[in-house]
């Protein structure tokens, strides 16, 4: 829990506003090379982003005394970052390592990151079997039923 009491932190709103304005500005900047009709939607969406961002900033300052509608928990950042890295690596290595190896490694890493209790031998064996079944099941579904060429 954020534990900052009733007064609202405006940091999330300001971050969102900044994001929106930057994105909108970049989107509009890129329209310089587009044809007239092709630039209409990017310009409109970019303008919406910027206007939304500005409005969000103003409202954030105006409503700073109101309680926040966000309940900010402090997330478990190490786990979050580790999971992101695992997932990205999984995606990147899918082709070079092949589907089976990369997925087995990826799934094992995800189990390891989710694990909170003590790791008994029995639990490890059960999970290993579960992963193997998952793998075999989905691999056969893709290759034999849906006939997808898997790397």
């Amino acid at each position: 829990m954020s534990g900052q009491g009733a007064s609202r932190s405006i940091a999330p709103d300001l971050a969102g506003a900044l994001l929106a304005v930057c994105l909108g500005a970049y989107a509009i900047y890129e329209t310089k090379d587009m044809s007239d009709l092709g630039a209409v939607f990017p310009t409109a969406a970019g303008t919406l982003c910027i206007l939304g961002g500005v409005a969000l900033t103003l409202l954030a300052f105006k409503n700073r005394s109101r309680p926040s509608d966000l309940t900010l928990e402090r997330p478990d950042w190490p786990r979050m970052v580790a999971l992101s890295v695992v997932l990205l690596a999984w995606a990147v290595l899918l082709k070079p390592l092949g589907f089976i190896i990369s997925s087995l490694v990826g799934m094992t890493a995800v189990v390891w990151l989710t694990w909170r209790g003590a790791a008994t031998v029995k639990a490890v064996v059960v999970h290993a079997v579960a992963l193997a079944i998952l793998m075999v099941g989905f691999y056969s579904l893709m290759v034999f039923v849906l006939r997808i060429a898997v790397p």
Binding site: L87, S103, H127, F138
Partner: peptide, 14 residues
């Protein structure tokens, strides 16, 4: 949960 997460992860990738 430790069996759900790898399954969900695998499904998203597939």
């Amino acid at each position: 949960k430790t069996a759900l997460t790898p399954a969900v992860a695998l499904l998203t990738v597939i």
